[in-house]
């Protein structure tokens, strides 16, 4: 009987060999362990064996049954694993189809640029101030050293809401409002909407400015150069060429107009095809900021002593900077709010 145990074991091992499928494993289970299975029958045959041999043989039979069961079980696991892997591989997601998510909203490009400008100045220790869009003549003009009948008022064609009130033509009145209520040191920027009686491809009746100023006991023109050069290189490129040239604003003295090297032709004034650059009109420079040392007259209006304090002020057009940064040629695109335009900005 011992020999037939070994034969059975070998037969089982032969049968469970590589090719076996799940059904085959099941058939093997029935054939060996079923009610009429070969092992079951041998268990029954134990009765025929002498009582001395029975315990040893019983033990051997039990070992064989455990062995068969474990083998069947592990074979089955193996087959199922293989089947799972095969079916997983057979799944057919087209991984080249587009991804899917909810469409995000977009922030307006002017807000993007406004935030960038604001962040550079916040990092330099400036704070934010705000003022009304409907201003009075005093804050918009007079206290900025533009008395009635001053020709500089021509530079800013005004929209009026009454005889005495107007839509601010620049953010500079915020400068006056802050200085009226506070004492130096001050380093402030005032972002906001401004309005002019003007409407074409490069002028909008509403546009945005960021005004900034710094007042303390010893602020010099060289500081204006340093702060604004740093700002421009943050907003444009670190190697951007910057030039300061004399200009005129009633509320600053000395005054400066600040240009950066043309972003399109890199300041060459010419395209690679030797054509005059259309962005800088061949000059190689783009006007980007107006600035200057705050005029002593302005300090008198707000009750500061020009012999004790000095400061600089500057102003810039947000649309202009956005147009240069993104290569936008028509200012009206900002206010048409066409999603096809707005969605170009991340």
């Amino acid at each position: 009987m011992r020999e037939s145990l070994d034969t059975l074991r070998n037969e089982f091992l032969d049968r469970i060999g590589d090719g076996a499928s799940e059904q085959e494993v099941e058939r093997l289970r029935v054939e060996f362990l079923g009610r009429k299975g070969k092992l079951t029958l041998m268990f029954r045959g134990l009765k025929e064996v002498s009582p001395e041999e029975r315990p040893g043989l019983g033990e051997a039979l039990n070992d064989l049954r455990r062995f068969v069961e474990e083998k069947l079980e592990s074979r089955l696991r193996e087959l199922r694993q293989r089947e799972k892997e095969r079916s997983l591989k057979a799944e057919t997601v087209d991984i080249t189809l587009p991804g899917s998510r909810w469409e995000r909203g977009r922030v307006h490009p002017l807000t993007l640029v406004m935030d960038e400008i604001t962040d550079v100045f916040l990092a330099m220790g400036f704070e934010i101030a705000r003022g009304p869009d409907i201003e009075d003549d005093y804050h918009n003009f007079e206290a900025l050293n533009m008395p009635p009948d001053h020709p500089a008022r021509d530079m800013q064609d005004t929209l009026f809401v009454s005889e005495a009130r107007l839509l601010r033509t620049h953010t500079s009145p915020v400068q006056i409002r802050v200085m009226e209520t506070r004492k130096p040191p001050l380093q402030v920027i005032a972002p906001g909407a401004v309005y002019r009686h003007d409407d074409d491809a490069t002028h909008s009746p509403m546009f945005h400015q960021v005004e900034g100023f710094m007042v303390d006991s010893q602020i010099a023109f060289s500081d204006l150069k340093g702060v604004l050069t740093h700002f421009l290189r943050q907003i444009f490129r670190p190697e951007t060429g910057v030039r300061f040239r004399p200009s005129f604003f009633p509320f600053t003295e000395p005054s400066a107009e600040i240009d950066i090297q043309c972003l399109l032709c890199d300041g060459k004034g010419m395209t690679q095809e030797r054509q005059a650059c259309r962005v800088c009109k061949g000059t190689g420079w783009l006007e980007i900021l107006g600035a200057g040392m705050i005029d002593p007259e302005v300090f008198r209006f707000v009750g500061y002593d020009p012999d004790r304090v000095s400061g600089f002020a500057f102003g810039m057009g947000v649309e202009r900077i956005a147009m240069l940064k993104y290569g936008i040629e028509d200012i009206r695109l900002f206010f048409q709010n066409d999603l096809r335009f707005l969605r170009q900005f991340a």
Partner: peptide, 12 residues
């Protein structure tokens, strides 16, 4: 923006 709204800037 997360709720899917896009920002408009209009003349007043």
């Amino acid at each position: 923006l997360g709720e899917g709204l896009t920002e408009m800037i209009n003349l007043p």
